[in-house]
Write a protein that binds this DNA or RNA. Structure first.
Length: 164
DNA sequence: GCCAGAACTCTGG
DNA sequence: CCAGAGTTCTGGC
């Protein structure tokens, strides 16, 4: 039941940016090329709205990592643990799924569970699942497009070098 | 209600 | 190259 969900679609450097939120915080962030494709999965109950969080998320996507945006993440305890670990990755850094598993004190056999939790993440960029790559350096997959993941990583690394 | 398969993987033989 | 490993969700029976 998507009650009280509001959303806004704004332009950003990677195309169209969708931000959806409730009274408790941002619950959905998606990237895409077409507004309809972004709005569709929200369901008919979501209505357009405005929030300072939208601007904060757009700033974050554009390369600055400051947003102290409250997140309304409803997931299993396991998924929350993974997402928390993801948010601890500094900008410009990349980690493998194995590193995440190790950081969470999980057995090396549960790596795929980490991947599953990442795939279940609805909040792009704010939970930096795009900073997670394969152990061999491959970009792996990305729910919102591997090309976008690549651009996000390249820009973050570029910004990190510039401000370094 | 149960079983099987998928989802942003990694390791060993 | 193939199979298996931990978690969650979904669909079919």
């Amino acid at each position: 039941m998507a009650e009280g969900v509001r959303y806004a679609i704004v332009p950003c450097s990677l195309g169209r940016l969708l931000v959806a939120w409730t009274e408790r915080g941002v619950c959905d962030v998606a990237l895409g090329d077409v507004d309809d494709a972004l709005r569709d999965p929200l369901g008919p109950d979501a209505v357009p709205g405005r929030s300072p969080w939208v601007d904060a998320v757009r700033v974050e996507v554009d390369g600055r990592s400051t947003a102290d945006v409250p997140l309304d993440l409803h997931g299993t305890p396991f998924q929350r643990r993974v997402w928390t670990a993801l948010r601890r990755i500094p900008p410009g850094e990349t980690r493998s799924y194995a590193e995440i598993a190790h950081d969470l004190d999980l057995p090396p056999t549960s790596i795929r569970a980490v991947g599953g939790a990442c795939a279940a993440n609805r909040v792009a960029v704010l939970v930096p699942c795009h900073r997670v790559v394969r152990a061999d350096g491959g970009l792996s997959g990305y729910r919102w497009g591997v090309e976008r993941k690549r651009r996000l990583l390249e820009r973050e690394r570029g910004d990190a070098q510039l401000s370094f």
